[in-house]
């Protein structure tokens, strides 16, 4: 299978002083993305304090009302307030995105390090990873969801598993080239244990590419959560998530476009913000990756 060759470079080589102002000038889109994300995080955390009402409250009289002063984003077919649902919905999307990114990076890093360093493990692990990668991610995720109950935790699990092999490959490629580097060989020569070498010398050098990879995983997880919910195999519909709100509202595209419009807009903006942040980070942290193959969203 085709592997993107990743040239790791060394943390030790890079200047660290980049003031915020300089970053802003050099990369305004990244800062914009970061600011939007921050705003979304604040809104998600403080959802009850942003003029919302109970997102579950049914109101049989006020069904399918358009955006107005009372209902900023309108109401859905059950008379629930869409502004409140969209704000609360950001919690699920952001949580799924962050958790999938962190989990797949952590697990992928662990497996990748071992696999890159212990040649005997490597063959078996990589065959399994190739196998998982051969199953299209969304199919794998919905198949996993078919095995489990619909819940936010299970969605996170189902989206994490397909991402792991890509992280493993990335880490492994980094490790394979790092272990030939002089400073790693040197510390091996002075008798440092394998674990020490992995933790002290190899891991820090994988952080930058992993963070970049993590943003892409995060972006794709947010979209995939919406896909799963749209297909009826995601977050249980009694929890408002952007995907669920849109899945329920798709019947009403023509008479109540706002049901799909607002959550879709927020979803698109969030993913856009994460992608911009990722592109910016890549350019800043890892210029050599910049023109390379992008990870996360491939699949």
């Amino acid at each position: 299978m085709v592997t993107a060759t990743v040239q790791p470079h060394l943390v030790e080589d890079r200047p660290r002083s980049a003031s915020l102002l300089r970053m802003l000038r050099r990369n305004p889109t990244m800062v914009g993305g970061a600011c939007f994300l921050l705003a979304m995080l604040v809104a998600a955390a403080g959802a009850p304090y942003f003029g919302t009402i109970d997102p579950e409250e049914l109101n049989p009289i006020d069904r399918l009302r358009g955006p107005s002063l009372t209902y900023w984003f309108g109401t859905d077919m059950l008379g629930r307030d869409l502004y409140s649902r969209t704000v609360y919905g950001s919690r699920i999307s952001l949580m799924v995105g962050l958790c999938v990114a962190v989990l797949s990076l952590t697990i992928g890093l662990a497996i990748g390090l071992l696999s890159g360093y212990l040649r005997r493990v490597d063959a078996v692990v990589m065959r399994i990873m190739d196998g998982i990668m051969a199953i299209p991610a969304i199919l794998l995720a919905i198949a996993l969801m078919a095995l489990m109950n619909a819940s936010a935790q299970n969605v996170i699990l189902a989206l994490t598993i397909p991402e792991i092999p890509r992280v493993v490959r990335l880490v492994r490629a980094l490790v394979l080239s790092l272990r030939e580097q002089a400073f790693v060989e040197a510390s091996r020569a002075v008798g440092a244990s394998i674990w020490r070498v992995l933790l002290r010398h190899v891991t820090p050098n994988t952080i930058a590419p992993l963070i970049v990879q993590g943003t892409y995983i995060c972006a794709s997880a947010v979209i995939f959560e919406a896909y799963l919910s749209f297909l009826g195999a995601g977050t249980p519909p009694n929890i408002p998530s952007w995907g669920n709100i849109m899945a329920e509202g798709r019947t009403y595209v023509q008479i109540a476009f706002w049901i799909i419009l607002f959550p879709g807009l927020f979803l698109a903006l969030t993913v856009l913000a994460v992608n911009l942040l990722g592109d910016g980070l890549r350019d800043t942290l890892d210029p050599k990756l910049a023109r390379g193959f992008r990870g996360g969203l491939a699949e």
Binding site: E56, L58, M77, L78, G232, P237, N238, E248, T251
Partner: peptide, 18 residues
């Protein structure tokens, strides 16, 4: 039990829950 793939019964379930 809320069958969320059937909008009519999903709606009824939510009313009952409330």
């Amino acid at each position: 039990m809320d069958p969320t793939d059937i909008p009519l019964l999903h709606g009824a379930s939510l009313v009952t829950a409330q």
